[in-house]
Amino acid sequence: MKPDALRGHLDALLLATLDGEQLHGYAIIEALQQGSGGALDLPTGTVYPALRRLERAGHVSSDWSTVGGRKRRTYKLTQAGQRALNAERDAWREFTTVIDGVLGGGKWAQS
C-alpha cells in the first residue's frame, strides 16, 4: 500500500495498535506490519514523529522503561486516546459502509 494513502490514517492505526497494550517503537512497527499482513509500506521512521504528535494531543503517554534488558521509550493509550480511537473506529465503519454501498455492488462492481 502506498505511503501517501496511509499517512492520513497513521494516527488511527497507531491508536489501534496501542489498544490495550504498552509497546515500544519497534514493537508498534512490527504490530502494524503483522496486522496488515506486511501490506503497510511506510518508512518506519515516520512512526516516531507521529507518536510524538499523538502524545502532544494527549492521546498517548510515554515512559522510559527497561524492556528485554534495554532502556526503551514505551507508549500507551490515555483515556482521551481511547475515546479518540473509538471515534475513529465509528467514523471508519460509517465511511466504509457508505463507500461499500456504492463501490462494492451494482454497476460499479460489475464493470
Binding site: P43, T44, G45, T46, Y48, P49, R52, R53, R56
Partner: peptide, 15 residues
C-alpha cells in the same frame, strides 16, 4: 526501511 534521512529529519524537526 527507516526512510531517507532528509525526509525523516524534516518530520522530526517539525516535532
Amino acid at each position: 526501511e527507516f526512510g531517507p534521512v532528509r525526509e525523516i529529519a524534516n518530520e522530526y524537526q517539525a516535532e
